[in-house]
Design a protein around this nucleic acid. Structure first.
Lengths: 217, 217
DNA sequence: GTCTATATACAGATAGAC
DNA sequence: GTCTATCTGTATATAGAC
């Protein structure tokens, strides 16, 4: 499985063929757990060291600071959002199917164990490290909006839809897919995320809405 | 001006006619500044006391803990979102105008100095105090979605629009109004929030989209 | 690189005089 | 209620031996 990840783990090591110290890997794994489960402020370097089964000094020998470690984690996980988002060859599908495929994948991603805690961490840290916000946006919602806008532009040129502002329409569609269910999850208004049936329903409704608004005349 | 606030400041004091100690008020004001400007974790009780020009012990004589003080602030500011949201008598307007008025007010609120920092603080604290998430949702986006859903239901009954699922459509509209511009602001992808012209454009586009999708047959 | 032990700092919260 | 002074815990980060 796995669609092959964007890069051979460019967390911090730049080169391609570094043996990848096992302790370093253990630190990264432990840090990902702690940061994403407990949140940035509650995460302590002691806890990370304990879970990685190394000493705190070892952690600092691999990462300059807590912030640096956090950035490595966040950048890596942001790249990991790409495979679950990509709907291969959706560009060939007719609008109704293409929009549904793209919308459903996005919804699933946003409620996933990957994106949800990542989003929280990024929001908490974006004041200190604005780059993290960019990384999340451009590997997630922004990426999707761009791909979808490209698709809509093509459909417009082919005369199948009428989309004078593809990027705006793409973002409207994504907003309509989420409606407020993701917000409710974020704000702990809902206990459980929407199930399969509800997600289908939300996405189908968004597809209908956007198709109604983009009929070629 | 001001449409009269929900309650006579029920921050923590329950009764109606308490003299309202000036030091207590100073603490609340200072805490609001510090929490909302610097963020919850960066805010220290020392800084709050210094800005309120009282001692830290005085702060603790009025509020049991940092969390309690934070909750008082957040609840108060959440209620303060209500007046700027309410579009008086929009229920009497025809769909195009009603949707525009509601959408524009919501967009302005979400980018305001009131809601933006509040949203950040709530997101950061919702793990520890889930009630804060509810408070924000129900005084902001949730409230608007409900009012709009009521309006749409009425329009459907009057035969002017076809809205089989008013709540869903209301949320789709709100999502389309935001498109991704608020997300970009949150994630520090955009430096400046959208200006007046852009906001109008976004809202008008969302109105067109939803009206196209709800034409009575 | 890796460990144990520790420096350093600052936070939230309180004691006790007035 | 209000102050000054302080307790106590815990966090990031480092020194120094191996």
């Amino acid at each position: 499985m796995s669609v092959e990840i964007a890069s051979p783990d460019a967390a911090e090591a730049p080169a391609a063929d570094i043996p990848e110290s096992p302790k370093r890997a253990a630190v990264l794994a432990a840090a990902a757990e702690v940061f994403l489960e407990a949140g940035v402020e509650a995460a302590s370097m002691d806890e990370i060291a304990r879970r990685a089964k190394v000493s705190k000094a070892t952690v600092y020998s691999h990462f300059e600071s807590k912030q640096a470690l956090l950035k490595a984690i966040v950048h890596e996980r942001c790249k990991a959002m790409l495979p679950p988002l990509s709907s291969p060859e959706f560009g060939e599908l007719p609008p109704e199917e293409a929009l549904f495929a793209v919308g459903r994948r996005f919804l699933d991603l946003m409620f996933s164990k990957l994106a949800m805690p990542l989003y929280r961490v990024v929001l908490a840290e974006v004041g200190r490290s604005p780059e993290l916000g960019r990384a999340f946006y451009e590997n997630g919602p922004g990426r999707l909006a761009q791909e979808l806008a490209d698709y809509l532009r093509n459909q417009d040129r082919a005369g199948r839809l009428r989309v004078p502002e593809p990027r705006l329409t793409a973002e409207q569609f994504i907003g309509a897919v989420l409606c407020q269910s993701h917000l409710r999850q974020l704000l702990a208004v809902s206990a459980a995320p929407p199930g399969d049936g509800e997600r289908d329903h939300q996405v189908r409704a968004a597809v209908r809405l956007v198709l109604a608004g983009t009929q070629a005349s």
